[in-house]
Computed example of a mutant assay.
Amino acid sequence: MQQDQPQDNCSDFSTVVRAGLPVSSSSQGRDVRGRFLRDVVRTYKNPIVGIDIEDLEVVFRGVRSPALGVGVASGNYRPQRAAQQAFQAAGGRSADHALIVVAFAPGDMRNGEGKMAAREIYQYMDPDCFVNIGLIEDEQISRGTIRVSVLLG
């Protein structure tokens, strides 16, 4: 008896993101959407903490204009500063849903930094907001640096 193979949802992620997130959804330029999509796919394929297709669909469901922002920081308070940058780049507004991806160099995540980044964004959100976080390692990020992407819907 043949075992079922896990389904590759990467094309589904791409379809959902491209359909629900116009290129104009970020004030930071055209490549922000592509970087976010690559990070989301990484959280699915090689997660520390993953995001799945249902998480994306919840953010886009009934949303007219989702907003995307990215922040990068190093040094003291790097998760908080990167999260603040990302939130402001996404319009700095409260939303019903937030999807947060925290990326860092392999072996460079410090204790609780993912939660710190999420808390920084959550403080501006409605208490009933749906917040989901994905954590990934990215070989292209320098040690000591963290990147936070936030999708508000």
Rank of each mutant, 00 (worst) to 15 (best):
R110V: 13
V101K: 10
L37E: 15
V40A: 08
Q3W: 08
V102L: 15
F36Q: 00
G71K: 11
V40F: 09
S24H: 00
K115W: 03
S11K: 10
I48A: 12
C129W: 01
Q123M: 07
V150R: 13
M116N: 05
R18P: 03
L135P: 09
V102E: 02
G91T: 05
S94H: 11
E139M: 13
Q5C: 01
P127L: 03
L37W: 06
R30Y: 10
Q123Y: 13
T43D: 07
I136Y: 04
R110I: 11
V63G: 07
Q2R: 15
V59T: 04
V41G: 01
L152G: 04
S26E: 04
M109G: 13
R42Y: 06
M116W: 08
V102Q: 02
I100G: 03
M1D: 01
S74W: 05
G107V: 08
E137Q: 08
S27M: 06
L151G: 09
D52M: 00
G144I: 06
R93L: 12
L151N: 06
I100P: 01
I141V: 13
T15Y: 10
I136E: 04
R35P: 06
S94I: 00
N9F: 14
A19C: 04
M116E: 14
V23S: 10
D8F: 01
V59K: 06
G107Q: 02
I146W: 04
H97A: 10
I100D: 03
P66E: 06
G20I: 01
D4E: 04
T145R: 14
Y44T: 10
G92D: 04
D8R: 07
G62R: 15
